[in-house]
Computed example of a mutant assay.
Amino acid sequence: MSTETETQTQTSSSTVEATPDSAMPAWLVSLPETAQPYVSLARIDRPVGIWLLYLPCLMGLFQMRIPTGLQWIDIVWVVLFLIGAVVMRGAGCTWNDIRDRDLDAKVARTAARPIPSGAVSLQQAYLFLAAQLGVGFLIWLFLPGDAKIIALLAIPLVAAYPYMKRVTWWPQAWLGFTFNFGALVGAATAASITGANVLLYLGLVLWTIAYDTIYALQDREDDALIGVRSTARLFDDKVLTATFMFQLGATMLIFLGAWFAGAGRIGAVLALAFLAHSIWQMIRLAPDREKHALSVFKSNVWAGAFLVAGFFLAAIV
């Protein structure tokens, strides 16, 4: 989730032109034509969302390993979390596209998606969703008991997410609580959920509000026309100030989560790296918010990687 998307949408009697951003990477183009729409529906061709779902799982796991050190079983969890992130992110995108198919057809950036473009029928989308959930269920079976319960608690949040943009100006907050459940699942897999882990989770929620607000900058004009709500619209001209405030809050909570988990000075270093990246994002966005929104959004994978590296280093040191 490459250049900025600039698809053009006209009336239902018109065709939708895909731009380079909506085109698949070369390695996916070699797939059978029948498979390509499903790859797009699951957003496998845009892996940023997979990383942003996967990295909190590792943060929670490594954070809870700080007092005891890493264990060999953690290699298994790292692999299973990755598989789970791929299929559950894909399932979430599929569900979101099913519920948003009418709205997506009216937004330039999303009109070429498989369901509104007709590449995948509604029935086929439901079958594909069921298949992804089936794989996710197999991963769920391997989790420890407490982690199983925590993972189940995320399902209502995922199911309700597509409706949030219709009823609240804060769908980004809902996404934050939903997308970062992996930090709680990772902690419950390693040991148990603690106050330090809750602080980390809340910090990641603020981080998600920030990066998804940046992502939503691409759609502000279309969203205003069709009545879709977002924090990008809510904050209007103050959007960069508000976004940076969320990043500051995220930095503080993540630092406290690392500190109380026993990360010590390493926690301070990872918080500073995270904050420095946040400042860079604001500088990058300042000249032209919409033009740079997608590339800045994607850069948050590196922000998450900084955090994972910090918690990993603290766990082995």
Rank of each mutant, 00 (worst) to 15 (best):
Y215Q: 01
L270G: 00
V39H: 08
Q218H: 02
G182Q: 05
E221S: 10
V301T: 15
V167G: 04
A303N: 06
L133D: 05
I266A: 04
A261I: 01
G60P: 07
A112S: 15
T168R: 05
K148L: 05
K165G: 00
S299H: 09
I73F: 10
D74N: 06
F246S: 04
W174H: 10
G262T: 05
N197W: 00
A314I: 01
G84N: 04
A119S: 12
A224G: 07
Q10H: 14
T243D: 09
L270R: 05
T3Q: 14
T11R: 13
V198C: 08
I149C: 04
A263R: 01
K298S: 03
L217H: 15
I316S: 02
F312R: 00
R101C: 07
D219C: 01
G257W: 06
M64H: 10
T251E: 07
D223P: 09
L225P: 00
A111T: 07
E6P: 03
L175Q: 01
G118S: 04
S40D: 12
L217P: 00
A268L: 15
P171M: 02
L61M: 09
I139H: 04
A187C: 09
W72Y: 11
L294F: 15
W51H: 08
T168G: 03
K291L: 11
A309S: 12
D97Q: 10
P144Y: 06
V86L: 11
A42P: 10
R233L: 15
V167R: 08
V87H: 05
A191T: 09
F255H: 02
T231I: 00
L61R: 05
Q123W: 11
Q123S: 12
R289T: 14
S192R: 14
P67A: 10
P20R: 07
P144D: 05
V120G: 00
H292I: 07
L234K: 14
L313E: 02
T34A: 14
A305H: 00
L133V: 15
T19W: 08
F179S: 02
I214Y: 01
I75W: 12
A276H: 05
W170T: 08
V16C: 14
F62L: 06
A261Y: 00
T110W: 02
S2Q: 13
V317D: 10
V135G: 01
T3M: 14
S13M: 11
L256V: 07
P162N: 04
A108H: 14
T241I: 12
Y38L: 12
W51L: 09
A273D: 10
R229F: 08
A190L: 03
L240A: 06
